[in-house]
Amino acid sequence: SEEELEEFAKEVLRRGITIIVNGIRITEVEIFVKVLREILEKR
């Protein structure tokens, strides 16, 4: 749901943790923004 997305976004921003994806360091915020864009483009 959109509320869950908002909560996830807030949690990500609070933690600001960097994770490893395919050997490249990407912040969770960047991943969230990318996923959010993909979701919005599909609408």
Rank of each mutant, 00 (worst) to 15 (best):
I26F: 05
V12C: 09
L36H: 02
R37A: 06
F8M: 05
K34C: 13
R25P: 14
F32A: 08
I17W: 06
E28S: 15
V21T: 05
E28T: 14
E30G: 06
A9K: 00
V29I: 12
L13D: 00
K42C: 12
I31Y: 09
I17N: 04
V21W: 09
G23K: 03
V33Y: 00
F32Q: 00
E4L: 14
L36T: 03
E30A: 08
V29N: 03
I24E: 07
I26Y: 04
T18H: 13
I31F: 10
E41P: 05
R25E: 11
L5H: 01
V29W: 14
A9G: 03
G16C: 15
V12D: 00
V33L: 12
I19T: 01
G23N: 08
V35F: 07
K42A: 11
L13W: 01
L5D: 04
F8S: 02
G16D: 05
T27Y: 12
R15M: 11
V12T: 07
K10P: 00
I20N: 02
I24T: 10
R43V: 14
V35N: 03
L40E: 03
E38M: 04
E11P: 00
E6V: 15
G16K: 06
E11T: 03
I17E: 11
I26R: 02
T27D: 08
A9I: 15
E28N: 12
S1G: 11
L5N: 02
E2W: 15
T27I: 07
I26D: 04
S1A: 13
L13Y: 00
K34Q: 11
R37M: 13
L40Y: 05
V12W: 01
L13N: 01
R25M: 11
I39C: 14
I26N: 06
I19K: 00
R14A: 14
L36E: 03
E3W: 14
N22T: 06
S1Y: 15
I26A: 04
G23T: 05
E28V: 08
L13C: 02
I31R: 04
G23H: 07
V33N: 01
V12P: 00
I19Y: 00
V35T: 05
E41L: 09
V33I: 14
E6G: 06
E4Q: 12
V29D: 02
E6P: 05
R14M: 11
I31E: 15
E28I: 08
L40G: 04
S1T: 12
F32H: 02
F8L: 10
N22E: 07
I26M: 07
N22H: 08
L13P: 00
E30D: 13
R37K: 14
E41Q: 13
R43S: 10
G16Y: 11
S1K: 09
I19R: 00
V12Q: 07
E4T: 14
L36C: 11
V12F: 03
I24L: 12
V29T: 04
E7I: 08
V12R: 00
E3L: 13
G16M: 15
E3F: 15
I26L: 10
T27L: 10
I26K: 02
L40S: 03
E28M: 09
E7N: 12
K10H: 03
E28C: 06
E6C: 15
G23D: 04
R37Y: 04
I20S: 05
S1N: 11
I20L: 06
V29K: 03
G23E: 03
R25I: 12
E7P: 00
I31G: 11
I31C: 10
V21H: 11
I19D: 00
A9N: 01
K42F: 06
E30I: 07
E28Q: 11
E4S: 12
T27Q: 06
A9H: 02
G23V: 09
E38P: 01
R15H: 08
F8N: 01
R15I: 08
I39H: 08
V33A: 01
E41M: 08
E41V: 06
L36F: 01
I31P: 05
E30R: 04
T27F: 08
K42Q: 12
I39M: 13
E4R: 14
A9Q: 01
S1V: 12
V33Q: 02
I26Q: 03
G23L: 13
V21Y: 09
E2F: 15
E6K: 11
E11G: 05
I39P: 00
E6H: 11
E4D: 12
E7C: 14
E30Q: 05
E30P: 08
N22K: 09
K34Y: 00
A9Y: 12
E30C: 09
E30V: 07
V12N: 01
V29E: 05
R37V: 10
K34I: 08
L5V: 04
R25F: 09
G23P: 05
E7T: 06
E2S: 13
R43Q: 11
E4V: 12
E11W: 02
L40H: 05
F32R: 04
R25N: 12
E38A: 04
T27P: 08
R15A: 10
K10L: 07
L5A: 01
E41H: 09
V33C: 11
E3V: 10
T18A: 13
L36G: 00
L13A: 02
E2I: 15
E6S: 07
E3Q: 12
L13Q: 01
F8R: 04
T18Y: 03
V33E: 04
E4K: 13
E38N: 05
E41I: 10
R14N: 10
E38Q: 02
I17A: 10
L36M: 09
R37T: 09
G16R: 05
V33K: 01
G16V: 14
V33M: 11
I20P: 00
E7D: 09
V12G: 01
E7Q: 11
A9E: 03
E41F: 04
A9R: 01
G16L: 15
V35G: 00
E38G: 03
F8V: 03
I19C: 02
R15N: 10
V33F: 01
E30S: 07
I20V: 09
I39Y: 12
I24F: 03
F8H: 05
I17V: 13
I39W: 14
E38I: 04
N22Q: 08
V12A: 09
E41W: 01
L40C: 14
E4M: 13
K34N: 09
A9S: 03
G23A: 12
K42T: 10
I19M: 02
I31S: 12
K34W: 04
F8Q: 01
E4G: 11
V35K: 04
R25W: 11
I20A: 05
L40A: 07
A9T: 03
E38C: 15
F8W: 15
E28K: 06
V12K: 00
V12I: 14
I19F: 00
E6I: 15
F32E: 02
K10T: 03
F8A: 04
R15K: 12
V33T: 02
E11A: 08
I26S: 06
F8D: 02
G16S: 09
E4W: 15
A9D: 02
R25D: 11
R14F: 03
G16P: 03
K42V: 09
I24K: 08
K10Q: 03
E3I: 12
I20K: 06
R37H: 09
K10G: 03
E3P: 08
E4I: 13
I39E: 06
R25T: 10
F32I: 11
I17R: 04
E38V: 05
R43F: 14
K10V: 04
V33D: 03
I19E: 00
V29S: 05
R14P: 01
R15F: 07
T27S: 13
R43W: 15
I31T: 07
E11M: 00
A9L: 15
L13M: 09
F32W: 03
E28H: 08
V35M: 11
E7V: 03
G23W: 12
G23Q: 07
I20E: 07
I24N: 06
T27A: 07
T27E: 06
E41T: 06
K42E: 10
E30N: 09
T18D: 08
E41R: 12
I24C: 10
E2D: 13
I17Y: 06
I20G: 01
L13S: 02
E6M: 14
K34V: 06
I31M: 10
E2A: 14
I31V: 08
I39Q: 05
E6T: 12
E11D: 10
K42R: 12
R14W: 08
K10E: 07
E3M: 12
T18N: 10
E2V: 13
I19W: 00
E7S: 09
L40N: 03
F32L: 15
I19Q: 00
E30F: 05
L36V: 05
L13H: 02
R25V: 11
I17T: 08
L5R: 00
T18G: 07
R25A: 11
E2R: 13
I24S: 07
F32C: 05
I24P: 07
E4N: 10
L13I: 13
T18Q: 13
V12S: 03
T27C: 13
G16A: 12
F8G: 01
I39S: 05
E7G: 06
E30M: 09
R37P: 00
I31A: 14
I39V: 04
E6N: 09
V12E: 04
R43G: 09
E41A: 11
E11S: 06
R37E: 04
T18P: 14
K10Y: 05
R37S: 05
V35W: 07
R15P: 07
R15V: 10
